[in-house]
Design a protein around this nucleic acid. Sequence first.
DNA 1: ATATCGATTATCT
DNA 2: GATAATCGATATG
Length: 214
Amino acid sequence: MPESQTSTQTPQIRPLNRAFFNRDPRRVARELLGKILIRQASRTRLTARIVEVEAYLGEKDPAAHSAAGNTARTAVLFGPPGHAYVYFIYGNHYCLNVSCEPEGRAGGVLFRALEPLSGMDEMARARDIEIHGPEDLRKLTSGPGRLCEAFGITRARDNGCDLTSAVSGLWIGEDGFRARAIRTTHRIGISKAADKPWRYLLDGNPFVSRKVRK
DNA sequence: ATATCGATTATCT
DNA sequence: GATAATCGATATG
């Protein structure tokens, strides 16, 4: 199995605390780069480093789902910080966010791309693809829909899950990795407020969902 | 290499 | 009834 790009071992992963998420989504997004998403459900632990995210502000961001107000769909975004907001899109895909800001105020960060660290075999099974070389690893978790499929994330299973608790089947941790070059660009795939530079990625990381144009 | 398009359903207008 | 925080396949340069 090919080695990962940013680390060759996984020392010790500690959960992020709730205060980390109790802030402006743009700040949370930037600082989430280099952190780790963990799925501990089966015998195998799935881990992958966060390399690309987008910030969505509260009710005043036209591109945010929370712009429609606190509905059955978006309730988690208005709830306490550090919880999973999972939505279904295009009749095909799930996408994962983490809620930000204090309870009562909306805001979140969309997970757009991860760099797999462990459990790649199980991810490939979940994605129903075969990995033949290091280049193929991108197909596991490079894209918001892909990473959810690789991690088995669905709305029924994970929406509202507390991502700050290692007791959860899904959580976010850190292992001491320090993000170096961080790049910001406009957000992907939206039509409203498309000019806002609220997409954050590890510059040069091969697992980002799209190549950075020059 | 980039461009375009169809799939498929929850949610909102 | 229209749209959507996507993906994968196909077409074209």
